[in-house]
Amino acid sequence: MLQGSIVALITPMTGDGQIDYTSLQNLVDYHVRSGTQAIVAVGTTGESSTLDTEEHISVVRHVVKYAAGRIPVIAGTGSNDTAYAIELTQALANSGVVAGLSVTPYYNKPSQEGLYQHFKTVAESSELPLILYNVPGRTGCDLLPQTVARLAEIPNIIGIKEATGSLERLQEIKACCPSDFLLYSGDDGSSCEFMLQGGHGTISVTANVAASQLNTMCQCALAGDREQALAADQPLRALHQALFIDSNPVPIKWACHAVGLVANGQLRLPLVSLAQDKVPELERALESAGVKVGE
């Protein structure tokens, strides 16, 4: 069972927008050193929406190669096109990843039955364990607890990344799903309390740049040590917020470059670099978290 701090890894790029595999290896090594419990490669934060299929599969396979068994890797395998989600899931099923992370179909706005049939069809196309990903703020649809409960009956659907930020939603899912169904926060700002209330971990943007600090918070929260967990989370709170002053992953790519983890903060259109007037807030948040710009 994967618990604790799981990083939603950025996909570093060269100045001309190609995959920067040297920086990618540096990131994997950083997370191994920092105690991160697992890596999600090519999820939303990894710019899955603008990587083509060959790049998507290549990045995941390279992360597995660089991890070399030192840290588990989860692959982003979701799409708003069920057939394409199946293609990605099948292509990565034997790549060395331990699971796929499958986002709710964005833009289409399917019904709850449509969501159920989508995930059921994807899960049944492969033996790869799947983690559902509910992020209605980005996708325009909400995977409700009753539908999650139905999906939890499918043997290789093993958990959910719940990014509504609602602790009430956590309790609703807990009440209707098996006790071994994995519950991950997808909202850094509420992830500490999420784990204190019975969640198993967080799939985190903040972990990209404050990996050891986030791991400490997670370990305290999972141990049920509320005082120490909140104390560890307090310095991170401004960073949790500042990393969303622009669309993810714009701020986190700037931050990873600013602290020397990657060669640059290049993004692919339609995303553009962080506006200069937003830089001071992010710099202050990094400093508060104990992350030094320029290191």
Rank of each mutant, 00 (worst) to 15 (best):
S95L: 01
Q234A: 14
D233I: 02
G140T: 07
G199L: 01
R61K: 15
A41E: 03
I203R: 00
I245L: 15
E283N: 13
Q112R: 06
A8V: 03
S126C: 06
V262A: 05
L51W: 10
A231V: 01
D233S: 15
A68N: 14
A99M: 09
D16W: 05
A229I: 08
A68Y: 04
G46C: 09
H240E: 14
S190A: 11
E54P: 00
K253T: 08
G69S: 12
G137K: 10
Y133N: 08
D225V: 01
D233Y: 06
Y84C: 04
V250S: 03
Q234D: 14
H31R: 04
P251G: 10
V103Y: 09
L230M: 12
Q213M: 10
V291F: 15
I154A: 02
F244P: 02
V259Y: 14
E55N: 04
T77W: 01
I160Y: 06
T45H: 06
T139D: 12
D81A: 13
A83I: 10
C177F: 10
G265V: 10
F194K: 00
T45N: 12
D16G: 04
A223N: 13
G265C: 12
T206E: 09
Q37C: 08
E193L: 08
V42G: 01
C256K: 03
L144E: 15
G100R: 03
T14D: 07
G114R: 13
L222R: 06
Q234L: 13
M13I: 08
T202K: 02
D187F: 02
L51H: 05
T164R: 07
L196C: 02
G140P: 07
V28C: 01
P235G: 13
Q25T: 03
K120L: 14
R61V: 00
E54N: 04
L282Y: 09
L236V: 06
I154Q: 05
H31M: 09
T50K: 12
D188R: 03
P12D: 13
R226L: 04
L167W: 09
S48E: 03
R33V: 02
H200N: 15
D142F: 05
K65W: 01
I6M: 11
R33A: 14
S247W: 09
V279P: 09
Q213R: 15
V32M: 02
I39R: 11
V279W: 12
T202M: 02
S34V: 01
L183C: 09
F181R: 06
K65C: 07
L101G: 01
T206K: 03
L143R: 05
V40C: 07
L128N: 05
F181I: 07
I252Q: 03
G43M: 02
E162A: 07
P235H: 05
A123Y: 08
L2E: 12
I86E: 02
G260Q: 14
M217N: 11
E295P: 00
Y66V: 00
I158K: 14
Q117F: 09
M1I: 03
K292D: 08
H62P: 00
S5C: 14
L271S: 10
Q90I: 00
D52R: 00
